[in-house]
Design a protein around this nucleic acid. Structure first.
Lengths: 189, 189, 189, 189
DNA sequence: CATGAATGAGTGTTCATTCAT
DNA sequence: TATGAATGAACACTCATTCAT
């Protein structure tokens, strides 16, 4: 890997590490540069400002699951809905474990509300994994494998919200919460 | 109301307003003092530091629903579980609307993790409304009005997680998300 | 003792205690009021400002030795010069032990240079104990009990300077330092 | 001289200038930065905090006389003791004139008592010029050029104490005070 | 006489960002 | 490409002081 892109990747991962370890408020340019082993000025060779760095870091983390989620809607009808959803959340919670704190912090910032694009939730249309998840749920519903009165958008958000419990380190795992939702979404046998 | 306590209350409510409007990061002592119509120094006559102010603000917001939640466990068996839970979340989402951003932001801060006491979720034992909610669910389960394999703690956290969707202003309401969970928790008819 | 003057005395002594214990920089109105067991506002019932409080505190401490020093010049010719000087410094170091830090700190402050009146050293004329000490030395010199080339003003300052060693807690006692000076001031036998 | 070190030196000298001119209490980071012609933030690129700046400033001033004092003990037996001591104090008073107010102020601060290392006086062992002066006096005493009952440590502190008279701008010069001490230390002819 | 409440001016310190090298 | 040096603006917090009660 050539030097330029490697430094860029270092910075993205350093951002995720610092935000997950020290919290959003302490994810300063200084801490990130130190974690990446470069100078602060180097950040600005690769990103126009701190916000762009954070946004890119979240996208970078998402990229690892994007591929799997891209194929998700096509799997409607396969296996069982419960297993599929469990795997969805499991992947999101596991692979993006370090990205969630940063993502939530950005989500909570009203000033950042406008630049939400590739993030967890968008105002009108979902994108990335959430969008694929919504599409998958819609497909399953039209196959009759989901209760008819379940709104795919609502279900998607409810499922994603369970990731929040992981971010704050509460006792039960994400899996436990998902279980409850799955029960509520499946059609009566 | 005498002058001292009134200023204190002003500050608590100004803190909630600013945090909800401008975000946690921009809830500076300056902005809060301005919102409250007092000087910054006045903050420090009423609270030892900013963290204590924030903690007190969250407690102040919680106090408004604490009374209602205190009577919640005793209502197990009355009305329907679904209606009760819907009212719970409705009250939390409605009355504490302005406190949620602050509460979540504090929850996400690893350095604040130790001083979590009267907040949304505590490591081992829940306190405040969440604790009452957990007790209520346990009571309903022993009445057979809840599926036996539902863990009250898990269900509590899953329900509270739906409040997150309100904080980020996503489309569906909290009520919609709660509906799904309720379906998953009720025993088969 | 009536209530007013007692509070005033409390404040003067609290000032000396706090300055000696915590240093000049931490001798704030808050700390002094707390030590005295009164409110900060009470300070301003008894003194126009903090500077006046500090000046009065030094005078208050000096007052305890003023009486003895007033009779010092008249004792020229009695006992031995060495014993007399030793007693002088012993009294200053002992009785004013807690006042020295405050006095030195005020002396070192250029802005306070103008308001020096009843303090350790004044630009032109000495006052208080230092003035009496200077007068005593002049009297001894005219009696031939001091070397003729010893300048009373210089000797006074040199003796007082040894108090500085006490303030910083250095090993040797003031007595040890005075001994050296006495040797240098006595006439050849 | 490259840019970095030059700024650092500027800051050290600005610190001495401001402390000598305005007093320790008014030697704020703002005033020092202005005197040095840089921004306040620049201070923190060169020193971790204000205390480190002040400590370094005192060391910087001492460095100018350290070299001369390093060779002092080896000069025992040369010239006359009186001339040697006069030169010692003359150098300390002259070259470090601007450092003395800062050094004394730090010495008087009880909270700084622990970080005293390269300063005027240390609890157990002297360092820097004072240490060399003590060693020199011990050497002269073993040569019989000092009275046998003079303790080198005590004599050192007594000599250094005379510098205090310079700091407060009292009339007589340091030289005058030293003269008295020298008389008291020399052996009878 | 005493104080609880309030504050304007200031403190040391940190931040994201720029720029000459 | 990368960085050491620098900074304006902002931060949480403290100070001596005032005033209505």
């Amino acid at each position: 890997m050539p030097r330029g892109p490697r430094t860029r990747t270092n910075l993205l991962e350093a951002t995720l590490v610092v935000a997950a370890r020290d919290g959003y408020a302490r994810a300063t340019t200084r801490a990130i540069a130190e974690q990446a082993g470069v100078s602060e000025a180097t950040i600005y060779r690769h990103f126009p400002d701190k916000l762009a760095l954070f946004g890119s870091a979240v996208m970078h983390a998402n990229a690892q699951v994007d591929e799997w989620f891209a194929g998700l809607p096509a799997r409607a009808g396969e296996a069982s809905v419960g297993d599929n959803l469990r795997e969805c959340l499991h992947r999101l919670a596991g692979v993006k474990a370090e990205a969630i704190p940063l993502e939530l912090a950005m989500l909570l910032d009203p000033e950042l509300a406008r630049s939400r694009e590739e993030h967890l939730v968008a105002g009108a249309d979902l994108t990335g994994p959430p969008a694929q998840l919504e599409a998958y749920l819609a497909a399953e519903r039209s196959l009759g494998r989901l209760r008819g009165d379940v709104d795919p958008r609502t279900a998607t958000l409810a499922l994603l919200a369970t990731l929040f419990t992981a971010a704050i380190g509460a006792g039960p795992t994400v899996d436990d919460c998902v279980e409850l939702l799955v029960h509520g979404m499946l059609p009566p046998e």
